[in-house]
Nucleic acid binder design. Structure first.
Length: 203
DNA sequence: GGCTCGATCTTG
DNA sequence: AAGATCGAGCCC
């Protein structure tokens, strides 16, 4: 039986939670359609001190949800055309979050729930959900979900699936934050070793 | 009000 | 290597 991740899951440091999220399922429903994917890659963003984080500019309208309680979705628009999904961590007043970077499409009950096979004819299955913008596009996640609690009733939730032991987790620098000075090379990106579904490898 | 640039992805 | 495309953040 599927078990939805609840409040207690979000207790701990953001780096711990980022690693704990690997192997869990990101789930999305709209009407009768359901998408599910296993989280294989994620990054930590560590609040105001982190020069790569949006919160480094302080509390603003955009970053407001990251300052709120944990277990909520922070969704923002990037490059005018893509959305990115984050899991907010830490108590109110602290703006930390986990960027979900890549998912592995999964099969449940013998039925391929995600992705819609017909729509991806001829495309490599490894490359359907291997990027923060791509997974939001495929799961129809946009700013209307910003601030939503991860829960079934909101059509966006997280489920137990696998626990990934530390030796199966690779730690690397984050992607696309070259401007972040002393923070740009910090090893805050985590992905499942040997997964062919991550966005970029060995960086 | 205007300018710059980004936690991206696709095509060439 | 460059273009798509737009809002946040910042400086007038």
């Amino acid at each position: 039986m599927s078990k939805v991740l609840k409040k207690d899951f979000f207790i701990g440091s953001t780096e711990e939670i980022t690693q704990r999220l690997l192997g869990k399922l990101l789930c999305r429903s709209i009407g009768t359609r359901i998408w599910k994917g296993k989280i294989v890659e994620a990054e930590s963003y560590l609040g105001e001190k982190d020069l790569a984080a949006h919160a480094s500019h302080g509390r603003t309208k955009r970053t407001e949800t990251m300052y709120g309680p944990p277990g909520h979705a922070y969704v923002y628009l990037i490059y005018g055309m893509y959305n990115c999904l984050n899991v907010v961590t830490q108590e109110e007043g602290t703006a930390e979050a986990v960027l979900i970077r890549a998912l592995e499409p999964i099969v449940l009950d013998g039925e391929k729930i995600v992705p819609d096979q017909d729509a991806y004819e001829g495309r490599s299955i490894e490359k359907i959900l291997n990027g923060p913008g791509k997974l939001c596009r495929e799961f129809q996640i946009d700013k209307s979900l910003n601030g939503a609690t991860f829960s079934r009733k909101n059509g966006l939730w997280l489920e137990e699936y696998e626990d990934i032991p530390p030796e199966r987790i690779v730690r690397a620098k984050r992607i696309g934050v070259e401007y972040a000075k002393q923070w740009k090379d910090k090893p805050l990106r985590f992905y499942i070793k040997d997964s062919s579904f991550v966005s970029k490898k060995n960086i």
